[in-house]
Amino acid sequence: MSYYKRDKRAWLVLSDGSVFEGYNFGCEGTTIGEIVFTTGMTGYQEVLTDPSYYGQIVLQTYPLIGNYGINSDDMESERSWINGYITKEWCEEPSNFRNTHNINEFMIEQDKIGIWDVDTRAITRVIREHGTMNGAITTEDIETTKAALMEKIREFKIVDPVQAVTRKNKGWYYSQVNRANHVALIDYGYKHNILRMLLRLGCNVTVMPANTTIDEIRMLNPDGIMLSNGPGDPAENVKIIENLKDFIKYGKPIFGICLGHQLLALAMGGATYKLKYGHRGMNQPVKDLTRDRVFITSQNHGYAVVPESIAKDVGKVTHINLNDGTCEGVEYPAIHAFTVQFHPEASAGPNDTGYLFEQFTDLMERGQQGCL
Rank of each mutant, 00 (worst) to 15 (best):
F255R: 01
E236R: 13
H319D: 03
E358H: 15
D352L: 09
T213V: 01
P307F: 03
F25Q: 03
S95V: 14
A337M: 03
D141R: 10
R121D: 15
I86S: 07
Q45V: 06
P231V: 02
H182W: 15
G302W: 05
Y62V: 02
Q45E: 07
F338R: 02
V330K: 05
V177P: 03
N221M: 12
E129K: 14
G367N: 14
K191S: 01
G281D: 09
G55K: 00
M208L: 13
G29I: 09
P253N: 12
H301W: 02
S228D: 08
F106E: 11
A346K: 02
T87I: 12
D187V: 04
G33V: 02
I127F: 01
D141H: 15
T120F: 09
D50R: 10
L48Y: 01
P63Q: 01
Y4R: 07
F37P: 04
G349H: 02
M1L: 11
I123F: 08
K146F: 04
I86Y: 00
I123P: 06
E151G: 09
T30C: 00
T30E: 04
V159N: 11
M197D: 13
R167L: 10
Y188I: 04
D73W: 15
L322G: 00
R125V: 08
R218A: 12
V294K: 11
T213E: 10
I217C: 02
D160S: 13
F25W: 10
I186K: 06
D215R: 09
N204P: 08
T100E: 15
T38W: 06
A337L: 08
I57F: 00
D16I: 04
N221T: 08
V286L: 00
E345K: 09
R79G: 00
G269F: 11
H343P: 10
N229C: 08
S347A: 14
G69A: 09
K157L: 07
W116C: 13
L289P: 14
I123V: 10
N300C: 11
S175Y: 01
T290L: 14
I108K: 08
Y273E: 11
W172P: 08
V13W: 02
S15P: 12
Q56D: 08
Q163E: 12
V238H: 11
I214S: 01
G224I: 06
Q163H: 09
D362S: 12
G22P: 01
V305D: 03
T145V: 15
Q56W: 01
K191H: 03
G55F: 03
A304M: 13
R280A: 14
Q299E: 08
E109G: 06
Q369M: 12
P350N: 12
H101C: 05
S80R: 00
V165Y: 09
G55R: 00
G302R: 12
R98H: 03
M197V: 11
N169A: 11
F247Y: 06
Y54E: 07
G66L: 07
E34C: 02
R79C: 06
D215I: 14
H182Q: 10
V286N: 05
E140V: 10
G325C: 05
V205N: 06
D119L: 03
N67D: 15
A304C: 13
N169H: 10
I217V: 10
E129Y: 12
I186V: 14
L198W: 01
V126P: 08
E89C: 13
N323R: 13
K249V: 07
L48M: 12
M133I: 08
I153C: 13
D223R: 08
T38A: 06
N229R: 04
V19S: 06
G224N: 13
I35F: 02
D313F: 01
